[in-house]
Lab assay of single mutants.
Amino acid sequence: MTVLPKDIPGDSLKVTVGTANGKPGDTVTVPVTFADVAKMKNVGTCNFYLGYDASLLEVVSVDAGPIVKNAAVNFSSSASNGTISFLFLDNTITDELITADGVFANIKFKLKSVTAKTTTPVTFKDGGAFGDGTMSKIASVTKTNGSVTIDP
């Protein structure tokens, strides 16, 4: 049996954390987006972790974005102690894959008090994996961190 590389060099799934701005007490939304989904033969499963400074940001909610089908079954998240974990699994293993680019999740943060303008990162942590529509590992994932700026 011969195994051929399935990824064209330079191609990767792009996962990007967005940015937001606000004043202390505001609730802002930071999107997590996927790009080049079709090039990577869709997404059938993924789990990953984001870190944030809990002294500056309070997670209000984490909701599935419009590219997630049947989110009540296929999407899960949790947030505590400065870490947000995400889990997606197409429970049907074929019919509810992520097949389009767009917003995977929206994180709502309540901004805490600061004395001066502060930009705090929302960054990928170690761990996690992504699988394509056949549940094979997506070897190349380009992750881009985001941030939230609090301006009193």
Rank of each mutant, 00 (worst) to 15 (best):
F124R: 04
K39D: 11
L50A: 08
F34A: 06
T134M: 05
L97P: 15
P121Y: 05
T29P: 12
V30A: 10
V68A: 09
V43E: 02
P9C: 13
T142K: 09
A54T: 12
A54V: 12
G82F: 15
T120K: 14
T99A: 05
D101Q: 03
M40F: 05
A105N: 02
T33N: 10
T29G: 14
L56D: 12
T149D: 15
G131R: 00
N70F: 06
D26F: 09
A72D: 14
T27C: 13
N21F: 08
T123Q: 06
V59M: 11
K14I: 08
V73I: 14
T149N: 14
K6M: 14
L4R: 11
V103E: 00
K14S: 13
D101I: 03
G133F: 06
T94A: 04
D36W: 14
V68S: 10
G25I: 13
G133Q: 05
E96F: 02
A38T: 13
G82P: 15
I8F: 13
T92H: 02
A116S: 07
G82A: 15
A20R: 11
T118A: 07
N70H: 13
F109D: 00
A71K: 12
F109C: 03
D7N: 12
V32G: 08
P5F: 06
F88P: 00
A100K: 04
G10Y: 07
N91A: 01
K125E: 04
F75H: 10
C46G: 05
K117P: 04
F34S: 05
I8H: 07
K23F: 09
G65S: 10
S147Q: 05
C46N: 08
I93H: 02
V62Q: 07
D7I: 10
G102P: 02
I67Y: 12
A100C: 05
I8L: 12
F104H: 02
A38W: 08
V141Y: 01
V103W: 07
P66Q: 10
D7C: 09
N47L: 01
D126R: 15
K108P: 02
N91F: 15
K6C: 14
L97T: 05
F104A: 04
L4A: 07
I107T: 03
E58K: 10
G10R: 14
I98N: 04
A100I: 06
I138A: 04
D90T: 02
N145E: 05
V43M: 06
F48M: 07
I67R: 13
G133W: 06
F109Q: 03
T33E: 10
V17P: 10
I138C: 09
D53T: 11
K125H: 03
N70G: 13
N106Q: 08
V103S: 06
A71H: 11
I93L: 09
V15R: 06
T27H: 12
A100H: 09
N42F: 15
G82T: 15
D126G: 15
V68P: 10
A20D: 10
S85D: 01
C46T: 10
N21H: 12
D53Q: 13
K6P: 11
T45N: 00
T19W: 14
I93M: 03
P152D: 04
D151T: 15
M135P: 00
P66H: 10
A79C: 15
F86W: 01
A38C: 14
I67D: 12
A129F: 00
F104Y: 14
T119N: 04
T120S: 07
Y49V: 03
P31W: 12
V114Q: 09
V59F: 11
T92D: 00
L56K: 05
D132E: 04
T149F: 15
D63P: 09
A71Y: 14
L50F: 08
S12I: 12
L89F: 02
S78T: 06
S85G: 01
M135N: 01
S55M: 08
T45Q: 00
V15C: 14
I8E: 13
L111N: 04
T83H: 14
M40S: 10
G25R: 11
K125M: 00
T99G: 07
F124V: 04
L4D: 13
I150D: 14
K125A: 01
A72M: 14
L97I: 06
S78P: 10
D53G: 10
V28I: 13
S140L: 08
A79Q: 14
V28R: 10
F75W: 05
N42A: 14
T45D: 00
V114C: 06
M40E: 08
D7L: 12
P24D: 08
N70I: 04
V122E: 06
G65K: 08
C46D: 03
K112Y: 03
T134H: 05
V15H: 06
S12Y: 14
P66L: 12
V60C: 13
K6D: 13
P31H: 11
P24A: 10
V103H: 06
N70L: 04
F130Y: 05
A20V: 11
D26T: 12
V103I: 06
N91D: 15
A139L: 07
G131A: 02
A79I: 15
N42V: 08
N91E: 15
K112E: 04
K143W: 04
Y52S: 14
T123C: 06
Y49W: 03
T83A: 09
L97K: 02
G25S: 09
L111D: 00
T33M: 12
G133C: 07
L13N: 08
K125T: 02
S147Y: 04
I98A: 04
P31G: 11
K108H: 03
V30E: 11
A38P: 10
G25P: 06
D151C: 15
F104M: 02
G128E: 04
T144D: 02
T27M: 13
F88Q: 00
A64F: 07
A54Q: 12
K41Q: 09
N81Q: 15
F34D: 06
T144L: 07
F48V: 04
T142F: 04
D101M: 01
F75N: 01
V28M: 09
L57T: 12
I67G: 08
I8G: 15
T144A: 06
V32Q: 11
V37P: 12
L4H: 09
F130V: 02
L57H: 08
N21I: 12
G146R: 04
L13F: 06
K110S: 04
K125P: 01
V59K: 08
A64R: 06
I107V: 07
K117Q: 05
V141Q: 04
P152F: 15
I98F: 04
K117A: 03
